[in-house]
Design a protein around this nucleic acid. Structure first.
Lengths: 202, 202
DNA sequence: TGTACATCAGTGAACGCGCGTTCACTGATGTAC
DNA sequence: TGTACATCAGTGAACGCGCGTTCACTGATGTAC
């Protein structure tokens, strides 16, 4: 970006990604509903109309940001998972919990961004891109459950419900906690409950 | 309202509740972020400043609406539950599922309202009133789980997780479905999973 | 290597808008005597 | 029962604002010859 910017004062060089990252910064602070194109442009130091070369309107900038956030979450999860090495049952269990924890921690750290991804379902049209990134996270979950299953840590009866149950519980607890309806401590208890439910422990 | 309105053309008679119910109507259509006091006033046929006798600002009107929505949801759940009579294990199970279903159906029918209650966590300050109404729904859940427990339908091991697990799963699946990340059919599967998890069936 | 020119990526002024909120006001109400 | 008056619940004009979006434009770039 520094080099790109050095090219010229007139041409920004990488405005599209600057728009996304500045939008990220502002949504992070104020929430998606307060994002304005003018504010984004001003922050970058570019005229208000420049953005229209990249996004037809405000909504599609938010969509673009949404996509990049799904990427970001998946990256974050994969990075954390990869820290837990080993082919043991123990490691598999830890990876499973890590998967849930990273989801929660990310949301807890960035509630406004989380809300853009999952809360403002109406302003965010469901693009095929988002679908794809979501699948990436979903595939990670499936891999993790398969691994547990191979170690006989999930009962046959429960395995088919693995993805749906895990994602719903983790997402639900996360939402309710950042919404102030449950306590932070409840998250680990919830993970315990899922493990018990799947037969992983107990 | 008709009689109250008939009193006079100048004095509305019941403006406070008219503000809430009109706000409800508009949020229902357009989402909370698009609610404007001017629009609400205009809809009622009252000057834009009249609302300030009842709500100090836009945000507190939304809070007021939020409170009334928690009431509404609890009412709806209680009404549906009460349709299922009987002191049998079977009835208890049906009441449990009904509790989850009403939550989901309500959200599915009114996604914008649901989003105001649970999604826009940032704009809605957590009033003691909301707390109370939420408790009402929570108490219904506890009663239902206790009943199942008395019929030996929940294992000792899982009973302590009952509320947390049920609420998280139901809330999570609901959010993900109205957000377009899961399919409508997944909701019943999710309920099956919770029942299996708690030991209610299987 | 130098130049003409199409294309790209910005500018900046202007549009019309609806918004939240304030203020001094006034019409209606109901109560005390 | 009638009247004076404090209180309540509205009015409507005005404020200043930031917004999304459009448009004709221009400066920079890079490519073909």
């Amino acid at each position: 970006m520094t080099t790109a910017r050095a090219r010229s004062h007139y041409h920004h060089g990488d405005l599209e990604s600057a728009l996304i990252s500045t939008a990220r910064k502002l949504v992070r602070q104020d929430g998606a509903e307060h994002l304005s194109l003018r504010q984004v442009s001003q922050e970058i130091g570019v005229s208000p109309s420049a953005a229209y070369h990249y996004f037809p309107d405000r909504t599609s900038l938010l969509s673009g940001l949404g996509f990049s956030l799904f990427e970001e979450l998946a990256d974050f999860q994969e990075k954390e998972i990869s820290k837990i090495a080993g082919n043991s049952a123990r490691a598999a269990r830890e990876r499973f919990r890590a998967l849930g924890r990273t989801y929660f921690h990310w949301a807890k750290k960035e509630p406004h961004l989380f809300n853009l991804m999952f809360g403002d379902f109406c302003s965010l049209e469901k693009s095929p891109q988002n679908q794809r990134e979501e699948n990436r996270a979903f595939i990670n979950l499936t891999k993790c459950l398969d691994e547990l299953y191979e170690f006989n840590l999930i009962s046959d009866k429960m395995r088919p419900y693995g993805e749906l149950l895990s994602w719903s519980v983790v997402h639900g607890a996360t939402s309710l906690i950042i919404g102030g309806h449950l306590e932070v401590e409840d998250f680990e208890t919830t993970l315990d409950a899922v493990e018990l439910a799947l037969g992983i422990k107990g």
